[in-house]
Amino acid sequence: MVPEINLVSPCEFTREGFARILSSEGFTVRGCFDSIAEVRYENLSKNSIFLLDDPDSAEHARLVETVKAEFESAVVVLLSADFDLASMLKCFRAGARGYVIKSLKAAPMIAAIRLAISGQRVLPQDVLEIFENQAKPIPALPEIATELDDANLSPRENDVLCCLMAGYSNKVIARELDVCEATVKVHVKAILRKLNVNNRTQAAIWANSHSTIGGYYPIQSSQSDTSAQPLVARAG
Rank of each mutant, 00 (worst) to 15 (best):
L85P: 03
A86N: 05
S87E: 00
S87M: 00
M88E: 00
M88Q: 00
M88S: 02
K90L: 04
K90V: 01
K90G: 02
F92K: 04
F92P: 02
R93C: 04
A94F: 01
G95T: 00
G95H: 02
A96Q: 01
R97W: 05
G98H: 03
Y99T: 02
Y99W: 08
I101F: 02
I101D: 00
K102T: 00
S103N: 06
L104W: 08
L104Y: 14
K105C: 07
A106E: 14
A107V: 12
A107M: 09
A107D: 12
P108Q: 04
M109Y: 07
M109W: 05
I110Y: 05
I110A: 06
A111N: 15
A112T: 00
I113K: 02
R114T: 03
R114Y: 11
L115P: 06
A116Y: 14
A116C: 10
A116T: 08
A116G: 10
G119M: 07
Q120R: 08
Q120P: 04
R121N: 12
V122W: 12
V122G: 05
L123E: 08
L123S: 07
P124F: 08
Q125G: 07
Q125M: 11
V127M: 09
L128Y: 13
L128D: 11
L128K: 07
I130C: 02
I130N: 02
I130L: 06
F131E: 07
N133P: 02
A135D: 14
A135H: 15
P137V: 09
I138D: 01
A140L: 10
A140H: 13
L141Q: 06
L141W: 15
P142L: 13
I144N: 10
A145I: 05
A145C: 06
T146V: 01
T146Q: 14
E147F: 14
E147R: 15
L148A: 05
L148R: 04
D149L: 07
D150F: 09
D150A: 09
A151M: 06
N152F: 10
N152L: 10
N152Q: 14
L153A: 02
L153N: 01
S154I: 06
E157C: 03
E157V: 01
N158Q: 11
D159Q: 13
V160E: 03
V160W: 12
L161A: 07
C162W: 05
C162I: 11
C163W: 13
C163R: 13
C163F: 13
C163K: 11
L164A: 07
L164F: 05
M165V: 12
M165R: 13
M165S: 08
M165H: 10
M165D: 07
M165Q: 08
M165K: 10
A166W: 06
A166C: 12
A166Y: 14
